[in-house]
């Protein structure tokens, strides 16, 4: 069993679990970065170096920076830690955890029939680019619309307005 695969996959899962159990937001963001980097390794192993690069640049880079910015703007984390502790009692997380485990079990049960063999051949950025600006050009248009909508939304919501009583 290749060590690399095991390492990357387990690091991804561990990172994700750490993200949802941290009390301090900055720690969670750091673990999220770890998760994304590990996931980028998984993408490379799946033969998708382009996706891996994007994952590192955009997810672990840009989006996480956005998170850090917001956390910095929101301010100190100390009282938050106590409050999070208050919110994270077993009574609060037991039910959801059971639900999520149930879903996980069902999905795994459903996937048991898929063959676990076969080695993927890498898909180069060239292939992706050709299909992006060939048959999937609508996708590019859609993504641009989506990003524009997001931009307008963020601008509108985040604009500083005088408070109306």
């Amino acid at each position: 069993m290749p060590v690399m695969i095991l390492f990357a996959a387990s690091l991804t899962v561990i990172g994700a679990v750490m993200v949802i159990t941290r009390r301090i937001a900055v720690h969670a963001v750091l673990w999220l970065v770890v998760t994304f980097l590990a996931l980028a390794c998984v993408f490379t192993l799946l033969g998708a170096p382009f996706a891996a690069a994007l994952e590192v640049i955009i997810y672990a880079g840009a989006i996480m920076v956005l998170f850090i910015f917001v956390i910095m703007m929101i301010g100190p984390a100390q009282p938050e830690s106590d409050r999070e502790k208050e919110w994270l009692r077993p009574r609060a997380w037991l039910g959801p955890a059971i639900l999520a485990t149930l879903l996980c079990g069902e999905l795994l049960f459903g996937l048991r029939a898929t063959p676990h063999t076969g080695t993927p051949a890498p898909i180069t950025p060239r292939d992706v680019g050709l299909s992006l600006f060939g048959p999937c050009v609508m996708m590019v248009e859609l993504a641009s619309f989506l990003l524009l909508a997001g931009l307008v939304t963020a601008f509108h919501i985040g604009r500083h307005r005088p408070e109306t009583p």
């Binding site: 069902e106 999905l107 459903g110």
Partner: peptide, 10 residues
């Protein structure tokens, strides 16, 4: 939503 998903899958 998750419960519904679970039920549908089951």
């Amino acid at each position: 939503i998750a419960t519904g998903l679970c039920a549908t899958l089951a």
